[in-house]
């Protein structure tokens, strides 16, 4: 079986009857688009890393924020996002299997694997909606956003308290935890000191663009913006996959003689998975 296909002049680059990159024009342009898109995400994650370092202990750790799992009670950090990562990797596998089937001109194979990829993408998007909803609504306990005032640290230094998020140590609401130095380090405040902090502060529940019960509001801004931007990519990926899926069913690519279009949307879909790999690391692990 021949492993090359003939193309008309409009679909390939000039060059001695051979596409210079050994790839169609559209596939090449998809790669160039992905490079620029990757640079955009690199910029976002770099700025996230900068502010995460900048605010130190004010920054919430993901294991204290994303602890829920559907239909399960208790504390399960990382479990749900690990499942989301698995779903996206799985849909990447079905996508690459669709591309492989396309190389063999196996229309049935392409149809089935494309359909599974679309289903995987839809499950991922619903998981993300669930995650957002939990983050926006927050915990039942809430947290205290401290008002104007000062607090003497154990090392003798005096800190301003305005805007600092103090969390409850447990359900009894008898001890407040103030962030100190590195992420995960706290100072316990009880008794009269705690009452004074409560009098000046106010309760916050959940997160939006200006309030975040888990810590610095910028964390919520970055979370909504970066996972939102990624989610938009997933959504457009699913839409593209659906369009190509119907083309496959109608036999467009069978008639054309090759399934390079599946490869092009495949590249985009793998890129979406690739970005999630980095979002997973920088948002949830580090």
């Amino acid at each position: 079986m021949s492993s090359s296909v003939s193309l008309d002049k409009n679909s390939a680059w000039e060059g001695n009857n051979k596409s210079p990159f050994n790839a169609g024009y559209g596939k090449l342009m998809m790669w160039f688009f992905l490079v620029s898109d990757a640079l955009t995400f690199t910029g976002f994650l770099a700025s996230y890393g900068f502010y995460r370092h900048y605010y130190g202990s004010m920054w919430p750790t993901a294991e204290n924020v994303f602890t829920h799992f559907p239909f399960m009670h208790g504390n399960h950090p990382l479990l749900f996002v690990a499942l989301m990562t698995f779903i996206l990797i799985m849909s990447s596998v079905t996508m690459v299997l669709a591309v492989e089937a396309g190389h063999r001109m196996d229309k049935k194979g392409v149809t089935i694997w494309m359909l599974l990829t679309i289903v995987g993408g839809a499950i991922f998007l619903s998981s993300q909606a669930w995650e957002w909803s939990h983050f926006i609504h927050g915990s039942e306990l809430g947290a205290i956003e401290l008002g104007k005032g000062t607090f003497t640290m154990p090392d003798g230094s005096v800190e301003m308290t305005k805007g600092v998020i103090a969390r409850w140590a447990d359900d009894s609401k008898q001890t407040l935890l103030l962030p100190w130095k590195d992420a995960g380090q706290y100072i316990s405040v009880t008794g009269d000191n705690m009452k004074e902090l409560l009098a000046n502060g106010k309760e916050v529940f959940g997160a939006n663009l200006t309030r975040n019960e888990y810590g610095h509001p910028l964390f919520a801004d970055f979370f909504f913006f970066i996972t939102g931007f990624h989610g938009t990519h997933v959504l457009s990926g699913v839409v593209l996959n659906i369009i190509i899926f119907f083309n496959v069913i109608m036999g467009t690519y069978q008639k054309r003689g090759h399934y390079e279009m599946v490869e092009k949307v495949g590249l985009y879909w793998h890129f979406v998975d690739l970005v999630w790999v980095f979002v997973f690391t920088f948002f949830y692990l580090i």
């Binding site: 079986m1 492993s3 003939s6 008309d8 009857n17 051979k18 790839a23 396309g102 063999r104 090759h258």
Partner: peptide, 20 residues
């Protein structure tokens, strides 16, 4: 590994999109 056979048609281009 695409087969790079000589192609004498001026209007035809080729690249790898198939395998056995």
């Amino acid at each position: 590994e695409h087969t790079s056979h000589d192609n004498h048609h001026q209007e035809v281009y080729e690249y790898a999109v198939h395998h056995s």
